[in-house]
Amino acid sequence: MADLPLAPSDVALPEARRRLNPTLVRYLSALRTPKGVVGLSILVLMGLAALLAPVLFPGGYDQQGPQALTGMSGKHIFGVDEFGRDIFVRSLYGLRIDLSLILTAVPLSMAVGTLLGLSGVISERLGAAVQRLLDVVIGFPGLILGICLVAILQPGWPALFLTILISGLPTAGRLARGAWLAQQSREYVLAARVLGVSRWQLLVRHVLPNAMDAIVVNGAVWMVVGVYIEAGLSIVGLGVQPPTPSLGVLLNNGLRFVTQSPTYIVGPALLLLLVSVGFSLLSDALNEAVNRR
């Protein structure tokens, strides 16, 4: 018998704490850590900016001004592009594209990936076969997959959406399948089996809640990957097509005028960085909270 962890005694914990859902407690505690607070604040700020862009700048992202390619100034804090359009306004509209892309594609990808990963519930053969297929997808790094899809679908939003969706499947699937396999040998799952609980009930009551942690953390990580995929494909010209601005498109344009107006790329890069850092901090905080005992 090892020195087992002690259960908190009657003195240590008030009754209310004993009745709090431990999953919820951990997620909330993640958001209270410094990383969680900073990450969430950044993301809320970015989200608001993207949401309010049409309200703040009802003129849209295509309004041209008299000058072109000026640096940062008080009037145009990110400067002006080659057509005299305000880069800040364009960046906010670009942020809308990026956020709407990842906030739809990533959760969907996680959900579909989880379902695929759990196909082993139906039959072990099916599960193993699906896993094999997902392993093939892993062989294609996100951008390579994107290149393939763009080749088929033409550059644009749908290709980006599908790229993010598909490239997220294997990890989510692997996590879900891993949880299913690992939970099978857990004593509380065996106990439920001995009681006569069916496989589907096992899945819903015991396996999914325990797989959630890893999948939620992975989802936050994949948000960052999604932004990379959008930006990466757009930089090489395979992403969203101009004049629609996405952060990647703005970087692509900025790079072309990097000698004339070196600050062109700074603004969009900064926003991209903030989104990426925001999600990274959030996923870090969640990960630490989930793995804390």
């Binding site: 990379y228 930006a231 990466g232 970087l251 900025g254 890069a269 991209l272 990426s276 850092v277 990274s280």
Partner: peptide
Amino acid sequence: FIAIPSFLTGLALIL
């Protein structure tokens, strides 16, 4: 470093 994608580092280095 993990959060900054390679192309942003690349752009910063170019600048």
